[in-house]
Design a protein around this nucleic acid. Structure first.
Lengths: 229, 229
DNA sequence: CCAAAAGTGTTAAAACTACACCCATGA
DNA sequence: TCATGGGTGTAGTTTTAACACTTTTGG
């Protein structure tokens, strides 16, 4: 196709920072590059935006192709356009961050003949391109946003114990929270449904399970309610 | 140049939502398009990203070319990539928002043989492309961010009275604030310098002038202080 | 019966809200 | 002298922070 606007065009990619929780850490998924530049180094999953898809679709497609993850929480983060971020030529990338609950999704640890793996955010290798910068921005965004938007639930199974919820916040915010105060606060928001169900296969006393009530949250939000931890 | 990545490439633009305050309103600068598509309609200032500049530089360059504004607060907002946002071909735009104090900057009301003008945000014409959507996003971001980051000062002259500061928040947040409580709160943050200077040419009792102490704010922030209104 | 985590209340301090008057100044 | 906005304090209420023990359950 002849371009109507005759400017040299940057290549456009998407890159995704996928967060998940394991027992004790916040983790991100990385992919080992098999080609130059940066062959053998770890990088964020991502790839080129096709002419026939939106940025969001490109991010979802790449995520599924490279990690098998689909239908997960995905939000645009920031667009990076430094001149030399790709040594070959000008590439602008739209970065996303994603949140996934490991139990609900079957993550291919390796796909595309490429090696994919989870890394704890405080034991990251140095990354290809400017992906360290993107990672920092994603972490900062997650830590900021989790406190005033109920996105943290995306990292948990749909039924969870209050301990798990508290633990998720402790891991992301990197500080201890007081158990009684945390429970009082989150329950007083009245956005959780207490289920008639308790934890299974737990070594000791089983906790009640809860579910996030998105409808109620949306209704309350429209009436001026603000989630804040 | 031969493209190393052989994908069809979207054109890449920047668009900027420039906010300013007049006596009573929050305003934005718009530009009347002289060419199709949308000839005669109002649109955000913006234009193509050149191959030799970053996204931020492109935004600053376009802003200066189209409005004469330079060295103003500028922050990336969001990247819009809907398939049909430009009727001619695929164009992805990186949107920015800017804050400017009208008194400190000489704004050309008209440049480039194009017509530029300020509009109150609650009396906007319908805009070209998807610029309505971008505008909504910018307003939402400004309203959210102004409460927990000290960016509102960018809309005021460097020396300002507390009344002006309060008024700025009232206009942006669209609600009355209590004078005594507002003063207590903002002064207790200890990020303003009280100057040995009072308002000039004011019809009645002149107010003390203050200045935002960015250094002190940065120092306090590093020690865990959080601005919040 | 022991280990482990669940669940629960109170108190003191701090922050927030609502509210009204006198003062200084220039016209 | 009047109109305009500057500047100030308090009391009631709400929110937050700190803190420890008993209960339940499975192994």
């Amino acid at each position: 196709m002849a371009h109507e606007y005759e400017y040299a065009r940057a290549a456009l990619t998407v890159d995704i920072v996928v967060f998940a929780l394991d027992e004790n850490d916040l983790q991100v998924m990385l992919i080992e590059r098999d080609l130059d530049p940066f062959a053998g180094q770890w990088a964020l999953p991502g790839g080129f935006v096709h002419e026939t898809e939106t940025l969001d679709s490109a991010a979802r497609r790449e995520l599924e192709e490279e990690t098998g993850l689909k239908e997960i929480f995905l939000e645009q983060l920031y667009t990076f356009g430094a001149m030399d971020r790709d040594p070959r030529e000008r590439v602008v990338t739209v970065a996303y961050f994603a949140l996934v609950n490991l139990e609900g999704h079957d993550v291919r640890a390796s796909t595309d003949a490429r090696n994919a793996a989870w890394f704890s955010v405080d034991e990251l290798p140095s990354l290809a391109f400017d992906h360290d910068t993107i990672m920092d921005a994603a972490l900062e965004r997650l830590r900021g946003k989790v406190r005033y938007q109920p996105i943290g639930f995306e990292l948990l199974p749909s039924k969870f114990a209050l301990r798990e919820l508290q633990h998720m916040y402790e891991v992301i915010l990197d500080r201890k929270l007081d158990k009684r105060n945390f429970r009082k606060k989150i329950l007083s928001m009245d956005i959780l449904i207490e289920l008639d169900e308790i934890e299974k296969d737990v070594a000791h006393r089983a906790a009640k399970l809860y579910r996030f009530d998105k409808n109620k949250y949306d209704r309350k939000t429209r009436k001026g309610f603000n989630f804040e931890l």
